[in-house]
Design a binder for these strands. Structure first.
Lengths: 341, 341
DNA sequence: ACGTACAGGATAATCGTTTAACCTAATATA
DNA sequence: TATATTAGGTTAAACGATTATCCTGTACGT
């Protein structure tokens, strides 16, 4: 059954220290001795007890990922990239959903700290992350933010090139001859603001006046996508389509697309004939709609990957006592042109 | 900073054992003493060191979920239900993707055992799970399977009512007057076999002869859904539509639906006018296709929930040395009627 | 020949909890 | 009154690894 290092030491005729040195390669050992130890290990089918090791070393080899909305496939993909990267460094990922509720997010962080995770990746529900200052006061562990920019807490971040991506999308619409282009997004946060800024920049550059009435934001980012089908974005879209002469619609994210697209379908508006449509953030399902939707694709896998690297670097920095300034990395987006514009 | 139980004991003027008893409620303590201990705890902002406790108790409070394909939202939802249920019992979930590869699945299980998880939930890539007998030989921890039935390893299981769900779907098609109904599914496994059986049962019951040529299976369950758009199911559908006189198509799962629906779109076949369509397993996106698709909805959240309960019950059983027979639970499906039939 | 260096190993402290075993005084039982 | 029992503690031994410190013998330089 479960054998300990002591039994291995006994069978090999050495001290437990020597076994530990052999297993970890932390001290020189005569080849002959090493062989004896390894033989004993094999004979007993010895496997190190990670609970004991973690306890002794004061680390859990666990990284927590607190996700604002796990039902969003974007974050599921981020988690996937993160997990893969962390696994390379011997860390495991613990995923928790905040369901877009700040209170749940805080509770999640508390719980994870209580299970003594070694690091934290956070996709925050709202920008205000000052609570982390207090919570991490006597738990100094590295933190990386993804997708949304926090306020009140300084740390590493990984974001998409939101402004550039939006800029490219709108520029593409303009190149197709559109001038009456509207922007609809879900709740206004730092990310949505960046995308709106890219939209404005493209218009300005083309000499098209920015009509403030053409920029609309929803009221929530709720996990329940069903609500979004006829939510605030739906109403904004309805208003834009019926009371204004827009010829193109740029949606700021998938949630907004749900509302906007539903509206277009219900009004029986033909895309791209009546309205050109393009959306920020791609989805597999956008190939199965009629028509297939042009999208600014993000690379969530890569965002997770980079966040994982950041955490691991911070972790080794912590061990070596070095302290680098926080960094912000941007992951490039790419326009996937389909049939909607 | 980090205070230990020893400092609490000192401040409270009691022994560490007493502090432990108070904190865990494992032994009677005079109210006055308890108060002193709790005061000390508050004063020092003491929090138990879970690494030490887990080490001492020989448990990790971690449950591993080995998922055949994490890119499938079905399993993401299962994970969600599982996580919620486990959290209630103080357990955390570790998610790992097997990418539909048996070798990765085995590696995942090995890794999780090496991190000494207390239990395992598995959505297996293939039915053959005999390898678990060896791996778990000296790691006797509870295991629950979800979605697919394993062979070669006995354990608890949670599945959808696959046969009943398929039966209901086909019965619905028959009620609408269809007799030439085809079934397409992805790779043939226990789950798909059950759904095919439901299909046959409905036909038999209506006195419609079962045409073996109307039952088609794909060749894979690969994570990469892009492959499925023009994969085996696509070809089967093409064949069924062009060389046979079917009036209705029942798709065995979402992956098959991708291939079949793509084919229908490309052939410009009108649903439901030319062909009635219904699919097993629902997706949010089925409301955004044209037309919205009728589906047999599963309750992955509930599957995860039940699997979590099973694991926790087994865990307490283990502690108490009791041994119950393995059980199989079925979660009911529900038909969501939309516009495709 | 003598001191120094180093390689290769052993000893034992340590991490923070839990918990079996033990202790004492007070109370219940006969 | 003598004896059990109990309540409310304490003591100390685990759990299984890591690692600083110490020890011994050999090789080497002068």
């Amino acid at each position: 059954m479960k054998s300990s290092i002591k039994e291995v030491a006994h069978l090999a005729g050495v001290s437990v220290a020597t076994v530990s040195y052999v297993l970890n390669g932390t001290k020189r050992v005569r080849p002959e001795t090493e062989r004896r130890v390894m033989d004993a290990v094999r004979k007993l089918d010895y496997q190190i007890n990670p609970l004991a090791r973690n306890f002794r070393k004061g680390e859990s080899k666990l990284i927590g990922f607190v996700v604002c909305d796990l039902s969003n496939s974007f974050f599921q993909d981020v988690a996937h990239g993160l997990e893969t990267q962390l696994a390379k460094h011997g860390y495991r990922l613990i995923l928790i959903d905040s369901k877009e509720e700040k209170s749940i997010e805080m509770e999640n962080v508390r719980n994870l700290l209580a299970s003594s995770v070694d690091g934290l990746v956070i996709a925050p529900t709202t920008e205000d992350c000052s609570y982390l200052k207090f919570m991490l006061a006597n738990h100094p562990i590295p933190v990386a933010f993804v997708d949304r920019k926090p306020i009140g807490f300084e740390s590493d971040m990984v974001l998409s090139t939101n402004e550039d991506g939006a800029y490219e999308a709108v520029k593409h619409l303009i190149a197709k001859g559109h001038r009456e282009i509207a922007f609809v997004g879900s709740r206004l946060d730092s990310t949505m603001a960046e995308r709106a800024e890219g939209y404005r920049k493209a218009l300005r550059e083309a000499g098209i006046p920015v009509n403030a009435n053409y920029i609309r934001f929803g009221d929530s980012l709720s996990v329940s996508q069903r609500d979004h089908r006829h939510g605030a974005v739906y109403k904004h879209t309805l208003d834009l389509l019926t009371k204004h002469d827009i010829t193109a619609l740029f949606s700021g994210n998938t949630l907004a697309t749900v509302g906007a697209f539903t509206c277009l379908m219900e009004l029986n508006i033909k895309i791209p004939q009546d309205i050109a449509f393009i959306t920020f953030d791609d989805s597999f399902w956008f190939t199965m709609t009629t028509p297939a939707l042009t999208a600014i694709s993000q690379y969530p896998d890569q965002i997770g990957d980079v966040a994982g690297k950041m955490i691991c670097e911070r972790l080794t920095d912590f061990r070596n006592g070095v302290d680098r300034p926080h960094q912000l990395q941007r992951i490039a987006t790419q326009m996937i042109i389909r049939s909607s514009c």
